[in-house]
Amino acid sequence: MSKFSLFPSSNPGQVTLVEAPAAATYARKARIVFWVVGLSSAVIGALSLAYTMPWPIVGMVLGTAAGFVVGFVCAVVVRIWPVLRAVWHWLAEICLFLVVVVGGTALVHTVPFVVALAVFGVPVAVVAALPASRRFVLTVFWCTVDRHRLRSFCARLLRSSSAKGGTLPLILIARPTPSGERVWMWLRPGLTLADLEGRTGALAEEFGAHQVRIGRASRTRAAYVYVDVVRRDPLRATVLSHLPDLVAFDASIVPTSPGMPPIGGLSLHEVPEPLPPAPRRGGRRPSDEEA
């Protein structure tokens, strides 16, 4: 068990993006992908170019080289996949960082500080002042937060479940809805929709929402699911029907009663209590004379 240390022994300038065991696993996968994809692509490329080019030997060499280039590209993608996934998860923050910090620094070095402050401050003030734009920014903020919270929830679920070798789902886009946000994700081996069912209460607490609903986003792809995060009830207002507008109102066709309908027993004192059932007579039957 690793202990927290204020002065770690490793290089202080080094930041761990991918844990060492995971990095080793992806390196092994990358080597396998390189040889499998590279060899098969090289064979296919060599044969194809050898038959199609005027010089078969040159075509074979070019096809083999192209095949190994394809294998190399695939291997690189597999090797850096954890980093790509992290970049995808933090894409919004990375973009924000680039715009605010990098853009801000460049602006300060280009124009006077007051102008740079105005360039950043005025839009922020306008967005904060207008309710519509403020709401929009808040919904985008919640969409970003939801993706992170969903990923961390799935990670905890995978760690606690029996399927410890499961893979984290790919959290796709999130977009605001009138009731909150909707996040789409692509489930991968180890985590199914059934694992998430029954945990909607815990998910709602994770999101800090009123309610969470999950379901399949596609009828043909079981791995493609959505998570609805409900923060407010957009159906508070009365929904009106258009049907009354379809007919021209004509008061003369609405029947009106000339008076009170002749129906009695409308008050409790007008309704008599039902008679109790007659008691069953036991013993011998009375004789004809007694009767």
Binding site: R213, L235, V239, S241, P244, V247, I253, V254
Partner: peptide, 27 residues
């Protein structure tokens, strides 16, 4: 439709709306 559930709110028809529609339909 499509076997999925969704949250809906039924449109409100007042008694007067219903009397109007029902009278028209009967007519």
């Amino acid at each position: 439709e499509s076997g999925t559930a969704r949250l809906v709110k039924s449109a409100y028809l007042s008694d007067e709306d219903i009397r109007h529609l029902a009278s028209w339909a009967a007519y």
